[in-house]
Amino acid sequence: MKKVLLLCMSMLLGAMLVAGCGSEEKETSSATGGSDKPIVIGLDDSYPPMGFKDENNEIVGFDVDLAKEATKRLNRPVEFKAIDWSSKEAELKSGRVDILWNGLDITEKRKENMLFSDPYMKNRQVIFVPVNSDIKSLDQLKGKVIGTQSGSTAEDFLDNNQDYAAQFAEVKKYGDYIDAFMDLENGRIDAVVTDELIGTYYMQKHADSFKETDIVVGEPTDFGIAFAKDNQALRDEVQKVMNEMKADGTIAKISEKWFGKDITTK
């Protein structure tokens, strides 16, 4: 019995020593700021130039480059997850994604359910039309069919301003702007209202098909990075490295790569 008791005590002591070493290793890893757990970033992968799939089916874009650099500085792996953009708040709240980083406008309504970073880029909603269209004013859009993306700032504005939306024959909503611009090119709709940055980039790629008007819908907004309401720690970590990236010129260089100049918030 004594031998059995001594054996059990030895096994228990060994287990305690192993557990202690594991705990120490975990604390050391945490102290270095690194983690093997990836930061999952939710995005609409049909939203050029912020986040989209290139000819090699790789997710690329301005926001993608920002996120890669930020997570690299945090010593964390990153995973980009394409989501239904109209369900983005549910994806964030459920924990299926950790961050929404994809040309997301900061609005008071969204602040009720998300934490936001500081703004990093200005944005406004602008009307785009076929290159041969004579539409130049809002009056000329009356009775016309316009398209926009479900879950977008433009959709929010039109849904919340019914008198404004009522002047159009129809507001057609799409899963992404690529489909909206395809319908515009094929004559199924008369105009698309979208983020100016996205529309301008798309127009540059299809200069023979589309042009930008001077018609602005709603008020200018700011792009921000969104986090779950209870994830203040991650928000602050990302904000810290974004501040560093702005100070050392990294954000400006990424902007120049995608837009030809630094158009980020100073």
Results as ranks from 00 to 15, higher is better:
residue 25 E to A: 01
residue 164 Y to K: 13
residue 235 R to P: 02
residue 163 D to C: 05
residue 148 T to S: 07
residue 240 K to G: 08
residue 24 E to C: 12
residue 32 T to N: 09
residue 161 N to W: 02
residue 186 N to F: 06
residue 43 L to A: 08
residue 112 E to M: 02
residue 141 L to H: 13
residue 263 I to W: 08
residue 26 K to H: 04
residue 204 Q to Y: 13
residue 237 E to W: 07
residue 69 E to I: 09
residue 27 E to C: 00
residue 214 D to L: 04
residue 210 F to H: 06
residue 179 D to N: 13
residue 23 S to W: 11
residue 178 I to V: 09
residue 181 F to V: 04
residue 2 K to P: 01
residue 232 Q to G: 03
residue 113 N to Q: 13
residue 1 M to S: 14
residue 252 A to F: 00
residue 3 K to P: 06
residue 260 G to H: 00
residue 263 I to S: 08
residue 59 I to L: 02
residue 155 E to G: 02
residue 1 M to A: 15
residue 62 F to N: 10
residue 114 M to Y: 05
residue 58 E to L: 09
residue 12 L to F: 14
residue 234 L to C: 04
residue 155 E to P: 01
residue 109 K to N: 07
residue 80 F to S: 07
residue 199 G to V: 11
residue 16 M to E: 10
residue 174 Y to W: 03
residue 205 K to Q: 15
residue 176 D to H: 10
residue 110 R to E: 05
residue 139 D to F: 15
residue 235 R to M: 08
residue 47 Y to W: 12
residue 141 L to Q: 11
residue 4 V to Y: 15
residue 106 I to K: 13
residue 210 F to W: 03
residue 42 G to E: 08
residue 257 K to R: 00
residue 191 A to L: 07
residue 37 K to I: 09
residue 104 L to P: 09
residue 260 G to A: 00
residue 126 V to D: 05
residue 142 K to R: 15
residue 247 A to Q: 02
residue 53 K to D: 01
residue 200 T to D: 15
residue 66 L to M: 14
residue 193 V to T: 04
residue 194 T to Y: 14
residue 87 S to A: 15
residue 191 A to K: 03
residue 94 S to F: 00
residue 127 I to T: 02
residue 65 D to S: 00
residue 262 D to W: 00
residue 172 K to T: 06
residue 111 K to N: 09
residue 39 I to T: 01
residue 73 R to Y: 00
residue 92 L to R: 07
residue 175 G to S: 12
residue 25 E to C: 05
residue 175 G to V: 09
residue 30 S to A: 15
residue 203 M to S: 15
residue 143 G to A: 04
residue 51 G to K: 08
residue 164 Y to Q: 09
residue 95 G to I: 01
residue 104 L to W: 15
residue 196 E to K: 10
residue 178 I to Y: 09
residue 155 E to Y: 01
residue 191 A to S: 00
residue 60 V to D: 11
residue 235 R to L: 05
residue 118 D to R: 13
residue 246 K to M: 02
residue 63 D to P: 06
residue 60 V to R: 04
residue 173 K to E: 04
residue 48 P to Y: 06
residue 239 Q to N: 10
residue 71 T to A: 09
